[in-house]
Structures are given as structure tokens and as C-alpha cells.
Design a protein around this nucleic acid. Structure first.
Lengths: 222, 222
DNA sequence: CCGTATCCGTGGAGATACTG
DNA sequence: CAGTATCTCCACGGATACGG
């Protein structure tokens, strides 16, 4: 990317990560940890291989990622964020929090991945009642599965299935994520096709983070 | 900008503000408040007028800014952020905080503006001792002037000159900003050409924000 | 003076085919 | 599986000319 030529930390940040796809590659590496070219490609539907290749080279040169040969059994290159790269997390998070207000807009052809279902509650909610017993929520949306584990004051998430969740939420991504992030209420989520099985009260254990997340459903189409 | 086509709040945010120049335009509007086309152009050295025009149109359509006719004496269009646009501040801030680690890299031809000198201490420092009396620091860097007013727990800044500052810092932008944001120490700042007149102790009233700002000077060239 | 519109050269983006 | 090579095309940057 051509430099902005401005002595301003925002411009300098964008000199490095302002290119198309770059921050989404960082997102993938933040969510997945060290992974292969093919994993990245799978998590970045729509990217061309030459572009992914070029961006990884740029990120490497900028010192944001490392390319290391995996140990023998794997025998491939693994990409991972450096400390400098991981330090982008607050910026990526803040962008994602702002982006929540655009999640109501319906675009049925959008790609969707299980780990995106997972990171949203991890990044944009907190545990409401640290004293309460641990709880597990199974999420299913567009066939993608993720698990929320609320334990003490912590909200952890992962891709996949839980053995015996307290609650199973199933529905279109808009309904599941909108409800979890507090952008819509249960009634609206149900209208959008959400179905819940189990103890719906555990939902109260998740509190959407404050900040720029709109408390009231704005006119975004939810 | 072409949509990423991903149902992910980060991707959706970048669908709106991921274009080249867009976040820098938001930066200008955050720092200046409502302003004219020409003011924006002045704060965005390097942008072509057609691009600025195009971006403003896109931002308007996306609902991030308003274009309102200024009252008679001015008789021009004023651009201002909507609530949705202002909500980007945390994201812009987080990017700027990350970008601090690239401010050590010397690039003498970079443009520099007084309001960039002003926002850095406002966004990236806090008052260390809320109980202490008010203090005023005059900044001068590359001919650009800004004022820091520390009052109670608050750090306010503005462009321009102060009547009787407790301290005047003068030097190249790298030295002044590096010192204020805590990326370099006084000795290094002096090496880089910083000169201070007045009570250097008021510098202790400013504490760099924690987070991803590198506490220790990393190998970035400072 | 403020802002928009047009033209053109260059480079980055996207799609796809292909190779170690 | 992990990229590289190639091709087309649009977006960007820069200059300039134009309308209010």
C-alpha cells in the first residue's frame, strides 16, 4: 500500500494494515492461532490465493506474523501473529464492536463460519453474575456450531458441540448473534426464526459490553 | 468498496470504512467537529479532491456524516459526523494507539499538522494525579503549536498558544510525541532534539495509557 | 473561493489456470 | 497442499478544467 505520508499514528497504522483483506487476515490469526495457508483461505471466503499470498508476505515483512515450519508430522508452514500483530486485537475488537450495528442488514449470500459465531459472545459480552454456577450454551446457526462456557466472571467460547448444554439456541445467524450481543430482544429473535431448547434463563448470565454497541435497536434492519 | 460478503461484524465494518482514506476522513471529523471541504482537504495532505468528494458522498449514503448548509454568514456546506460516525471513535483510537509503535520510524517527508499534535496526548495519556493543581504545557513541533491543559483528572488539548504555560516543549515531532506518549524517555527525547523550558516536573502529571502501547521502547527506531 | 467533474497513467484486485 | 503466474479490469492518484 502506498503510504499516506502523514506523521500521525492512525495514518501509520493504516500504512501497515489499511490494505484490503489485511485486517481480516489478522482476525483469522487472532481467532485461530497458528494455522496453515489453507486454513486461512477457508476462513477468508472470497479471497484470491495470490492476494492471500501477497498479504502474508507483507505482514511478514512488517513483522506482524511469522512463518515457521511445523514439526515433522505436519510438514507445512504455519503462520502466527507476533507480539506486534497480537497487539492489534483491541483495534480489531473495536472495529467489530462498531460493525455490530451493521449486522441487522440482511444479506443472505454472506458467508458464515463457526469461529465467527464463537468470537462474538467472547468479545462482545461479559458474565453478568460471577457468583452463579457455570453454564454452557450450545449455538447452532446455518449449520455452524459453537459453544459458550460461562464460568465465574469469564465467558469462553469454542467451535463445536457441547456434551450436555444448559441451553441450545438454533436459528439464522442474525437471530442468534443479534440476541447474544443484545442488539435485539428475545421476541424479535424468535420472529427472526430463533428456537431455544433448555433453560432460557442462562441468557441473563450474558451482558452485552457497553461502549459503542447500540443499546437500543437502531434502524439497521434487525 | 466491494463487500467482503462475510457475516462477521469486522468484515461488515470494513465494508463501510475499509476504503482508502475513509478512516482518516473520520479522524479529521472526530478531531475538528463540523467543518468544510477545504478544512478536510487541509487536514488530509495527499488526498485528491475527487477522492475526497467521492468518499464524502459514500459516508453520507452510509449515514456516517451529514452535509448541512451553514448559516448565512458562512454560506457553505459543513460536514459533520452522525452518532453512528462518532461511534467509530473507539476503533480509530485503538488503531492510533497501535500505530504509536510505528511513530519511531523516521520519514522526514511526512506531513504534520497541529491537531495531530493535540490529539495524541488527549487520547493516549491520562492525568496521573487528579488532586494536583491545574497545569498547562505548550507544545511546538515543526512549527505546529498545541496546548495541553491538565485539570483535575482530565487531559484536554487544543491547537494554538497558551498565555503562560508551566512548560514549553519544542522539538521534532518524534521527540515531542514520543516523550508524551511514553514511548521514549527524556534522555532519548533530548538526543532527538527536544528542548524544554519551564517546570519539567509537570510531565509526571501525564501517564501514558496502558494497553497495547509498548511500555518499553521496542526496536522501532526511536 | 468552494466544490464537482473529467481525463489519463499506473497499480492493485479478482478470477482462474497451473506447478512443485 | 501451498502457493505462483497470468490476464483483465477497476480503483486510485494526480492534474486540470469547469460551475456556483
Amino acid at each position: 500500500m502506498r503510504s499516506y505520508g502523514q506523521y500521525c499514528s492512525i495514518a501509520r497504522a493504516l500504512d501497515v494494515v489499511g490494505d484490503r483483506w489485511t485486517l481480516l487476515i489478522v482476525r483469522e490469526l487472532l481467532l485461530r492461532g497458528a494455522c496453515r495457508f489453507t486454513d486461512l483461505k477457508a476462513g477468508l471466503p472470497g479471497i484470491a490465493t495470490n492476494l492471500l499470498s501477497a498479504r502474508l508476505k507483507e505482514l511478514d515483512e512488517a513483522g506482524l506474523i511469522t512463518r515457521e515450519d511445523a514439526p515433522p508430522p505436519v510438514a507445512t508452514v504455519l503462520y502466527a501473529l507476533t507480539e506486534d500483530g497480537r497487539a492489534l486485537e483491541p483495534a480489531v475488537r473495536a472495529l467489530g464492536r462498531w460493525g455490530l450495528r451493521r449486522m441487522g442488514e440482511e444479506r443472505p449470500d454472506d458467508a458464515f463460519r463457526a469461529h465467527w459465531l464463537a468470537y462474538a459472545p467472547a468479545w462482545f459480552t461479559t458474565a453478568a453474575d460471577p457468583e452463579a454456577p457455570a453454564a454452557v450454551i450450545q449455538l447452532v446457526a446455518s449449520g455452524e456450531e459453537a459453544v459458550i462456557e460461562i464460568d465465574g466472571g469469564e465467558v469462553r467460547t469454542r467451535v463445536g458441540r457441547a456434551a450436555s448444554p444448559d441451553l441450545v439456541l438454533d436459528g439464522p445467524p442474525r437471530a442468534v448473534l443479534g440476541l447474544l450481543t443484545g442488539v435485539i430482544d428475545l421476541a424479535r429473535a424468535t420472529e427472526l426464526g430463533l428456537s431455544g431448547q433448555g433453560d432460557m434463563d442462562v441468557l441473563r448470565r450474558l451482558r452485552p459490553v457497553e461502549g459503542d454497541v447500540p443499546g437500543a435497536p437502531s434502524a439497521t434492519g434487525f
